[in-house]
């Protein structure tokens, strides 16, 4: 494999991480919760999509589009049922509840769909083709394209729509936003829903490559965290770029250094970033005085 084709597949991997990373950041910004169950909710949503696909004769592209409402519903329901009742409890309690979510979705998927990997149909061709002398798989290009268009839509949503503006306002200062007439509770539901949609897309994109199984998202959510921390957990564009860098760096590391220690790479990166620049590479440090 040449360097360029490695970079392309790294970018594809990074796009998957970015979708998860962004969903974590959206929730964290809107509700101050770090949702450790996000990856499992994504996996659960992907299983729901697969069931939809098997039960109906729906074309694949439609099913992939359907992941968005499925994920939104999943996220919004979780917010309303699990997170809403304890929103005034200490942050730690909410975090523990999201770990409960991890357990619930992880094992519920195992109970309903079994513990074996399921093949998942791919929107894009998996066999490599040659573009300008570089061997790439259409799947990689497709993943990058989907992720980029989702990110662009997200940008438009946050910058150009009333809802997006409301969400940004609520994440900056909840009290002030409430006084301006923004329904902060609705923003929280919307944020969880949006994050749910994004993460299910990422699960559906990766599933054809890794097979869909109950444990598939455990390492991916860690990478999403790592990428988001690398770019700055408080910044959406920063976390996307961080995830893309992580994807490429990890692929190169796997190809040139060691395949078996590839998964550990992300963790070492987390430690290094936290040690050297805890607010992320792309976020200017705002020191807090005591």
């Amino acid at each position: 494999m040449t360097l360029l084709s490695l970079v392309v597949s790294g970018l594809a991997l990074g796009s998957i991480y970015a979708l998860i990373g962004v969903s974590l950041v959206i929730i964290s910004k809107a509700t101050d919760v770090v949702n450790f169950g996000q990856g499992e909710m994504a996996m659960f949503g992907a299983f729901l999509t697969l069931t939809l696909l098997r039960q109906t004769d729906m074309p694949l592209w439609l099913a992939v589009l359907a992941t968005l409402p499925i994920g939104f519903l999943l996220g919004a329901l979780v917010q309303l049922i699990v997170v809403r009742p304890i929103e005034n409890a200490p942050a730690l309690n909410v975090l523990i509840s999201t770990l409960g979510l991890f357990f619930v979705f992880n094992s519920a998927a195992g109970i309903v769909w079994g513990f074996d990997p399921h093949p998942f149909p791919s929107l894009f061709e998996l066999a490599p083709i040659t573009v300008g002398g570089v061997a790439v798989t259409p799947a990689s290009l497709g993943i990058i394209a989907v992720a980029l268009s989702v990110m662009f839509a997200l940008y438009l949503f946050f910058e150009k729509t009333r809802w997006g503006t409301a969400m940004r306002a609520a994440s900056m200062n909840r009290t002030a936003a409430r006084m301006m007439g923004i329904r902060v509770e609705h923003v929280a539901v919307a944020a969880w829903g949006l994050a749910g949609g994004l993460s299910v897309i990422s699960a559906v994109l990766i599933a054809p490559l890794t097979f869909l199984d109950q444990q598939m998202m455990v390492s991916i959510i860690l990478k999403g965290f790592a990428g988001a921390i690398l770019g700055g957990f408080s910044s959406l564009p920063g976390s996307v770029i961080g995830c893309l860098i992580l994807g490429v760096a990890e692929t190169l590391f796997g190809a040139y250094v060691s395949t078996s220690m590839k998964d550990s790479f992300a963790f070492v990166l987390i430690i290094l970033v936290l040690l050297l620049r805890p607010s992320g590479v792309f976020v200017t440090n705002r020191a807090k005085k005591v």
Binding site: F36, A91, A266, F267
Partner: peptide
């Protein structure tokens, strides 16, 4: 494990410990 994470906010420690345990088992 805690040295880098504890300088910043609480949930970073959770993430660092999660990563640590996965890598250690590996």
């Amino acid at each position: 494990v805690g040295l880098p994470a504890l300088r910043v906010r609480g949930h970073y420690l959770a993430i660092a410990t999660l990563g640590f345990s996965l890598v250690l088992v590996h």
